[in-house]
């Protein structure tokens, strides 16, 4: 399974980014290959309007099964994500990526 996290850094110890559309980075964890990759989304800071749909579209390209984030996507981003089979988990905004992954595995995160 492929899991994508909204994060403020590039490794397991990074803090999660509670924001969806304006998240600084994504980290993508491929459980089958045990492989961690990342994507730099910091250019989104220059986008005045429509950040959510842009970030959602970028995420699509990684074809994740699971999205783990903090506050959850806004209305526009949610409309984009509805076109995918991604299951969204929220409430991990104050955790590190590792903690968020463990919380997800232990069923502690809420489905959006």
């Amino acid at each position: 399974m492929k899991i994508i996290f909204t994060t403020t850094g590039l490794d397991w110890d990074s803090k999660m980014d509670p924001r969806f559309g304006r998240t600084e980075y994504f980290i993508i964890f491929d459980e089958d290959k045990d492989e961690l990759t990342s994507y730099d989304n910091t250019a989104i800071a220059d986008v005045a309007h429509g950040a959510g749909p842009q970030t959602a579209q970028k995420m699509f390209e990684f074809k994740p099964d699971i999205l783990i984030t903090g506050n959850g996507p806004g209305g526009n981003a949610a409309r984009v994500l509805q076109n995918s089979n991604i299951t969204i988990y929220i409430g991990a905004g104050n955790m590190t990526v590792k903690e968020a992954y463990d919380a997800f595995k232990n069923g502690k995160l809420r489905i959006y």
Partner: peptide, 16 residues
């Protein structure tokens, strides 16, 4: 950013 092209369709965000 009012238009997003997805793999199989195009979405319009008319408010933007």
């Amino acid at each position: 950013n009012a238009i997003i092209k997805l793999p199989d369709h195009v979405m319009v965000f008319s408010k933007l």
